[in-house]
């Protein structure tokens, strides 16, 4: 086998050229180019992770904004409800008050009217009494020819009328 047969005459050349070429590989490729390739990979990985974390942060911010917005919307809705309720209550109160006022006016008028009606009735009743006692006196005078005292007649009529 040439590896052994040629050992004595070729070992120096083999070692010498291997050291030259492997040295080139190590110093130029291994130490010069490989770290640059790996730095590219590393910067890409870094960029990807940075982008991912930025996206994550943006998502969190969006979630946050939505939450705030929702809270705000809920608060506004509450406020609106309160406002509506207040307006309702106020409206009810005002209408109650005006109703009460109107009621009072109506009640006053009704009382007035009742009083007048009662007065008119009393008046009418008094007149009827007077007419009736006069008529009774005249009837008595015509029928019996007795002159009845006006006061006695009135009392008799009153008794008859009121029982």
């Amino acid at each position: 086998m040439p590896q052994i047969a040629q050992l004595a005459e070729t070992y120096a050349s083999q070692i010498f050229w291997l050291l030259i070429f492997f040295g080139f590989v190590f110093f130029v490729i291994g130490r010069g180019m490989v770290p640059k390739v790996m730095a590219t990979v590393e910067s890409r990985d870094k960029q990807i992770s940075a982008d991912l974390s930025a996206a994550e942060a943006a998502r969190a911010a969006a979630d946050d904004a939505e939450q705030t917005w929702q809270a705000q919307a809920a608060r506004q809705r509450e406020e609106t409800q309160a406002l509506i309720a207040k307006a309702k209550a106020e409206g009810a109160k005002t209408s109650e008050a005006s109703l009460a006022k109107a009621n009072a006016v109506i009640d006053a008028r009704m009382a007035d009217a009742d009083a007048r009606i009662a007065a008119a009735r009393a008046n009418a009743l008094g007149e009827i009494e007077a007419v009736a006692s006069e008529a009774a006196a005249q009837i008595v005078a015509r029928v019996a020819g007795i002159r009845v005292d006006a006061a006695a007649g009135a009392a008799a009529v009153k008794e008859a009328l009121h029982g």
Binding site: E9, S13, F16, W17, F22, F24, V25, V28, V34
Partner: peptide, 23 residues
């Protein structure tokens, strides 16, 4: 020391060249 440029050295050189172009 006897250090001729042999066919072995030539193929090491070719290896290095191909590797260099690859990287």
């Amino acid at each position: 020391y006897h250090i001729p440029f042999t066919n072995s050295a030539l193929w090491m050189a070719i290896t290095v060249a191909v590797l260099f172009l690859f990287v």
